[in-house]
Amino acid sequence: MQRNPVQGSPAPIRVVIVDDHAIFRSGLKADLDPDIVVAGEAGTVEEAIAVIAVQRPDVVLLDVHLPGGRGGGGREVLAGSAPLLGTTRFLALSVSDAAEDVVSVIRAGARGYVTKTISGAEISGAVRRVAGGDAVFSPRLAGFVLDAFGTAPADIADDELDKLSARELEVMRLIARGYSYKEVAKGLFISIKTVETHVSAVLRKLQLSSRHELTRWAAERRLL
């Protein structure tokens, strides 16, 4: 995806990998770029909450489906680590394409979502982006957002939490079409920083909106 040239930055990014498959954890560890240091691993909800509280990593790579806890999986880890959400960012990883899995971890506080099939370079890029405070949207997540908020832009300003602005819609559409942030910026003649601002705004809306349509959309998919 995007190869941010931050390799030279002095402090490496510390991550915790939370996944119940040991094979996947070791594979991911080998795939990550050298400037990303794995500070800890966990395989269950309880382990994850404990490791995150001790290590306080920059980024947690969080599998959506996890054993343990009360069966809530990744969402429960996010709920258990709520006090750390200001400093530790969560990036959801999943093999599941199901809307309920993806949207529920985002609404619980994850800063992005990627599928497990993407390459090591792409995951490293996503980790850096999340560590920098930005949001990571895969084409599929953008598709869910467009599905949930509808494809008509907001016309009045006061329901700004409940609808996407015309620009945000354009950005989401391009991401859904498979554009990287850089390509989005080029296509819309704006800076990458502006794209990141729009994406973060969309993430905030997705997390905070209690909009009628979003609720109904979620209820139809048994999200709430």
């Binding site: 084409p139 598709g143 494809t151 559409r173 859904a176 079409r177 498979g178």
Partner: peptide, 17 residues
């Protein structure tokens, strides 16, 4: 290959990238 299908009231659009 990325494929995006969007169906609105006005049209059906497909993007293949």
């Amino acid at each position: 290959v990325s494929v995006y299908l969007e169906v609105t009231d006005a049209a059906a659009e497909v993007f293949v990238k």
